[in-house]
């Protein structure tokens, strides 16, 4: 119960924090401009390489991946920022369940991530003319929610590193970009070298994108339930790993005394 309360207050607080850390106009930039730029870039590269079909492929992939802006970058920064603001030590001496604390925060990031994807969807429809007429909108939103949640689990995993190292921003950025290669965002995963194909299979985003592509082509829930199921499964695995990472790095950081370095 206490863990729940910690999670709740942390969620409310992080929403306020999100807004003060990212000022409204900054937030608009992160929400509308960066996604547009990213999507345009890959759309045009795809068009140059493989014509209109490749472009639609990249647009849909990027649309889904965009929720990682908040759920991976935002989530890991949420932990990272504690360090920058010097509040990390305060947080870690408090008796609350810290994992619950950050999970609570993730609620905000999950919802915010979905809105990023919805913004991407608007671009896909109005700027790049992708046809969504066959898609079941409710099913799409469900997939977006699951994907965003899964990605914030991933963000939490990365964020846990910031308990230990101050270079978490670099790691978060790298992970964000890595998703662009590995998860079938811009080209089918079958194009990847075998090692990376293996990696793509354990990342929930791969399933989320695949499910989205099928729903866009008119698939029903029963068609994609396997994919959604797989995504949830790997998301659970990520959370478990994240939890242990968190514990582990907290211990390690306490031993090394690296909370204050920025």
């Amino acid at each position: 119960m206490d863990a729940l309360r910690a999670a709740y207050s942390s969620a409310v607080f992080s929403y306020k924090g999100l807004l003060t850390w990212i000022e409204p106009r900054n937030y608009i930039g992160m929400k509308f401009i960066v996604p547009l730029l990213q999507m345009s870039f890959f759309a045009y590269v795809a068009k140059n390489a493989g014509g209109a079909e490749a472009m639609s492929f990249a647009v849909v992939g990027n649309m889904v991946q965009l929720c990682a802006v908040t759920s991976v970058l935002g989530m890991s920064m949420a932990v990272g920022m504690e360090r920058y603001f010097g509040t990390l030590p305060l947080l870690l001496v408090s008796p609350t369940n810290r994992f619950a604390l950050f999970m609570g925060r993730s609620v905000v990031y999950v919802l915010d991530g979905v809105t990023s994807t919805l913004v991407g969807l608007a671009y896909a429809v109005f700027l790049f003319g992708v046809d969504f007429s066959q898609a079941n909108p409710v099913l799409l939103v469900v997939i977006f929610l699951v994907t965003s949640f899964a990605l914030s689990g991933f963000g939490l995993l990365i964020g846990s590193l910031s308990l230990y190292t101050r270079e978490v921003v670099a790691v978060a950025n790298a992970s964000y970009f890595a998703l662009l290669i590995v998860c079938g965002v811009n080209f089918p995963v079958t194009e990847l070298p075998h090692v990376l194909q293996g990696l793509s299979k354990v990342l929930p985003l791969t399933y989320g994108i695949q499910a989205t592509r099928e729903v866009v082509q008119g698939a029903s829930f029963t068609d994609v339930q396997g994919l959604i199921g797989a995504e949830i499964l790997f998301m659970g695995a990520l959370l478990v790993v994240g939890y242990f990472f968190f514990r582990y790095f907290e211990q390690k950081a306490k031993k090394k005394g690296t909370f204050e370095l920025i």
């Binding site: 590269v45 390489a49 490749a54 670099a170 080209f187």
Partner: peptide, 28 residues
């Protein structure tokens, strides 16, 4: 030292993505 890593991430990703995407386009 992490700058090396930081700086090379995005060019690496862009070049990799582009190389894979352009693989089947012989004119490039």
């Amino acid at each position: 030292p992490v700058w090396i890593f930081e700086m090379t991430v995005s060019p690496f990703v862009f070049a990799t993505v582009a190389l894979i995407m352009f693989r089947d386009s012989p004119s490039t």
